[in-house]
Amino acid sequence: MSLTTLAQTLASGALLGCFYTLMALAFSMVLSVTRALNLAHGDLIILGGYLGYWFWSGSGLHPLLLVPVAGAALLPLALLWQWLFNRLPEPKELSSLVLTFGLSLLLQNIMLALWRGEYRLIASESLTGSIRLGGLRLNQGRLIVAAAALAAVGGLYLALTRTRWGRAVRATSLDREAAALLGINVDQATRTTFLLALALSGGAGVLFATLHYLYPAGGIELTLLAIVLTIWAGVGRLRSVLVAGVLLGVIEALTVAWSGPRWRELVVALLLLASLLARSGGLAGGRSH
């Protein structure tokens, strides 16, 4: 591999990593506020992607314009998710995993029924072509996706730090009981979390659909990626998630460059198993019980 190709691979992986960051943040927000692991996270993203594809093929609008549309389309599901998660018995980590394993199955089924398992890609002409940057040629689609993802992450950061409801979400994620004692409406904050997380997932789905072919069973890989990033970065640390996301994107790009795209899923699963074994405990750093 020549130096230029290497640099190009690294840059392209880093761009992908920005997308992974966005995706993992939505997962870890829900985890930090509800202590629930949403195994259907990736399926929701794929659903967002399919919806985006559907709008795009019907309207021909620029995919970026469809990001908020797909995000909004998942909002009703956010309320359903919150309703279900509120009723989980302790310990929430395990019961949520069991519940969302079932939800993931249902979502895949619905997508399979609606889109018949065909591979779909938002192949908009506005995203093809490449941009020269120094000696590197960067895929324009990836650049746009990375920029959009970073914009969403930045927007989320501002919302969580600068707005009143954002601060309520952060306080609830740090310590639910203490937040309630301070007069924060934790139910409201939880609802905000689910709405934000699913809107981000839906939007992320559209971005994903411009990069990769969608297929109904493809969500699990995204879920596993989100869990890996959460293990690496810890819950609720925005900057660490960004670093971890970029690192994971680079690892993936190198894997694909060296051994071809079919090894990607295997590497993701191996990373997850290795990270779990190395950590041998909870995602939040504590023991699992």
Binding site: P91, L97, L266, L272, L273, L276, L277, S280, G281
Partner: peptide
């Protein structure tokens, strides 16, 4: 995964099945 429990054991086994599929 002898040291993993509950949800984390579940995730490890999930990853394990994906590894074999890969």
């Amino acid at each position: 995964s002898a040291r993993l429990q509950g949800a984390y054991l579940a995730l490890a086994t999930l990853a394990y099945a994906e590894i074999w599929r890969g």
